[in-house]
Design a protein around this nucleic acid. Structure first.
Length: 273
DNA sequence: AGTATCTCCTGCGTGC
DNA sequence: TGCACGCAGGAGATAC
């Protein structure tokens, strides 16, 4: 499932193939994604040069002179560079065709993904999907002091707190579990009880794990495939996620698995306080 | 206001 | 071998 490292991997994978090239057409086979895909998309971006491919949180940003296409991979989406004549699969919902005879092909079995057109390239920060977002986890703005400050008086569990995009973006369920384990912090701990040193520790681990996962090309679970079609190699390095009941890698006590706000949460009750 | 729950969707693993 | 069922989960929408 695409978390931030997978989106970053996709961004880097597709960029060299499509940046600077002109869109020749957009084929929407199934526009019923999270929100209906704009039916005029082909007319809007057809003939336009894709100026830049970037990422904000888990959104891929395809920037044109006349606006920005926000692409979210949702739970099961992938965006790959393909030959447009390649056989169309069951869940290949959208092709963005380029004049260099390549296409970006969006595949998304669960259709939690999104293609959202924002018709003004200069006001992205005001877009409702972007405006409320916290800092990028790997940016200099995401520090222990920052997280400590936000956590004051928060009653929400620590895991929910770091998964809240208003606090910091890009920390999905898998990496939240892993970062809390690495930092030795209990996922159910009340966020407001976080001390300054513990916040610093947590931030260090979130950065380390995300950076490492990006280096490895993202986590491969079920249906994620990177921009170039090669899978990521991080899944085998997960310490707790998917290992409920198995021995803790640090102390060998069985890892606890429970649901927290409908998300699988795995931790070591001995190592994480 | 801050928190918690609901919702979208399909494929896969499990149990009978 | 087949079928029903539960689970996976990003994040906006909705409800408390």
């Amino acid at each position: 499932m695409p978390e931030l490292p997978e989106v970053e991997t996709t961004c880097r994978g597709i960029r060299p193939h499509v940046e600077g090239h002109t869109v020749s057409n957009v084929i929407v086979r199934n526009g019923r994604l999270r929100w209906p895909v704009d039916e005029g998309l082909a007319e809007i971006v057809g003939g336009r040069v894709l100026r830049a491919v970037s990422r904000r949180a888990k959104y891929l940003l395809l920037r044109f002179d006349v606006g920005i296409l926000l692409v979210h991979l949702g739970m099961s989406g992938s965006l790959r560079v393909v030959n447009p004549s390649a056989a169309v699969g069951k869940h290949d919902h959208i092709d963005v065709l380029f004049n260099n005879d390549l296409a970006l092909r969006f595949n998304d079995p669960r259709r939690f993904g999104a293609f959202v057109w924002h018709g003004d390239a200069t006001t992205l920060d005001e877009h409702p999907l972007i405006a409320h977002l916290g800092p990028e986890p790997l940016s200099n703005g995401f520090t222990g002091d920052y997280l400590y400050g936000l956590a004051r008086n928060k009653k929400t569990p620590l895991k929910s707190f770091i998964m809240d995009a208003k606090m910091v973006v890009g920390v999905g369920n898998i990496y939240a579990n892993e970062a809390l384990f690495a930092a030795g912090l209990h996922p159910l701990k009340v966020a407001g009880k976080l001390t300054r040193p513990k916040a610093a520790r947590l931030v260090v681990q979130i950065k380390a794990i995300l950076a490492h996962a990006i280096e490895r090309g993202g986590t491969t679970l079920r249906d994620f495939v990177g921009g170039d079609g090669k899978p990521g190699y991080f899944a085998q390095e997960l310490n707790v996620y998917g290992h409920g009941g198995k021995p803790c890698p640090r102390c060998s006590k069985p890892l606890t698995e429970k649901r927290l706000q409908n998300r699988t949460t795995v931790y070591c009750s001995a190592c994480q306080k």
